[in-house]
Design a protein around this nucleic acid. Structure first.
Lengths: 252, 252
DNA sequence: CTGCTCACTTGACCTGGGTCAGGGCGCAAA
DNA sequence: TTTGCGCCCTGACCCAGGTCAAGTGAGCAG
């Protein structure tokens, strides 16, 4: 499952996963500032590239890592979508996040030294694997790498904090849609129309409410002409109204 | 407000803040693994000690930093208690955490490069200030420092994640009490009897419920002989029952 | 085609915890 | 002493969102 593979054009019809050109993809990755640096020590750059392993594809439902696995690496999503989730003693799940191409997973495992959650592909997915010990050594040599790691970690604290806020279902769902739109836009796709790669149940679980509530809130949004939903296709019609709803969650 | 001060015996009656002996205090600090290393490069150690500024006292209500301040340093609480809190556009507060001696605040500011929350002393408080640029340079030279920073950041993701869980008031409050007990115990105090340094309103806000709910749940716990509450004095009577309640939150 | 499954929707009803209102206690200032 | 104010507690009521039950509709195997 972990063998490096050549990464050419991806087969999926999903526009994100189609982002198959090596350089183009890398330009939207969280590691782009370190993987594609200008005017940086060529030797260090080569080391970084040697340290990256391309892994995949993972099919829907397959795990990139699982709760309790010994921590050894962090991963950048290269194509597809990864869901991270906790499963508690009572068997209840909590979705921690959906990770799009360019985003990094596994940072929450550094401290416990085991992965504290599962990371599951929810569509055909490719990732870049970064051995963490190797990355830490490189970080000591290349300030830019160290700085980027600090930033990524710090940003993840902020993301977790947003989820922890005390907000109504309308606020949470509006913020969720806008957040996805922003993240797609940051990767060069439309910020008004996109495809949900996850089920309603997963969205509900992520936002900490029942699946029925997702349906009901989406219906309300639709009735108020804020969005247009067709299955998993989303079109945001009234960005400013959505932003007004979400304003107390998303702080950027 | 930021001038370095000599740090002798603290005046407060709070047992935590009384932990005034320099070495003893430092041994319980999150930076202890790097501030008090054995067999590490003496020169680097001196650099770290030179980089630490002792700041305080802050009186109740005074800010160590405020939302929007330019990020320049992280802080370890030395004595007292610090509350971190967001204030959203609607003026509603969200308490992000209570920080006891030895704990580090400000890590969530690395990414945005401004502090994304207020850090307020809720009793007489002293802190250690670590210039972040200086710390990053040191981290590149001393692997132990870098590793400790990565760990602290990663641990903060985990803490924020716990808060984000979807749990009942009973579960959350039980987990809160046990968490405080653990943290006091880790610093050499009783894990069964301790003093709450924060108001019921702040606890409620931290746990994302109304102040009334704190009273009601504490009453239920008391009726069930799980705890004994006298004002802000807490005695945990039935740890295993509390752990059973909290088991789906605290994962350690 | 038929039947099955899985994702999603909708309506009816219920409940945990929020809101509101009132009251007690301890402490400090006058 | 009284008055005021923070902090905390409690009861009555209410509502956002959970739960339960009953759909629909798309995709797919036979």
């Amino acid at each position: 499952m972990n063998e490096p593979v050549f990464f050419g054009k991806l087969p999926s019809a999903n526009p994100i996963a189609d982002d198959g050109d090596d350089l183009h993809f890398c330009s939207t990755c969280a590691f782009a500032p370190v993987c594609l640096p200008e005017g940086v020590d060529k030797h260090a750059l080569r080391e970084l590239h040697m340290l990256v392993e391309h892994v995949g594809p993972f099919r829907t439902g397959e795990a990139i890592f699982r709760t309790g696995d010994r921590f050894a690496a962090i991963y950048a999503v290269r194509g597809g979508t990864v869901q991270t989730r906790l499963v508690d003693d009572a068997g209840r799940e909590q979705v921690l996040g959906f990770h799009l191409p360019g985003e990094v997973i596994g940072l929450n495992a550094i401290h416990p030294e085991i992965y504290p959650c599962d990371a599951i592909a929810i569509e055909s997915t490719y990732v870049c694997r970064f051995s963490f010990p190797a990355l830490a050594i490189l970080a000591a040599k290349v300030p830019r790498v160290q700085q980027q790691l600090f930033r990524l970690l710090s940003a993840d604290i902020g993301k977790a904090t947003q989820l922890a806020g005390d907000h109504s279902a309308d606020e949470r769902l509006a913020a969720f849609l806008l957040d996805l739109a922003d993240r797609y836009a940051a990767r060069g796709f439309s910020d008004r129309r996109f495809h949900l790669t996850m089920t309603r149940v997963d969205i509900a679980n992520y936002l900490r409410f029942a699946a029925e509530t997702v349906s009901r809130v989406l219906r309300r949004f639709q009735d108020r002409q804020l969005v247009l939903i067709t299955g998993r296709e989303v079109e945001l019609l009234d960005l400013s109204a959505l932003r007004r709803l979400a304003r107390n969650i998303s702080r950027r």
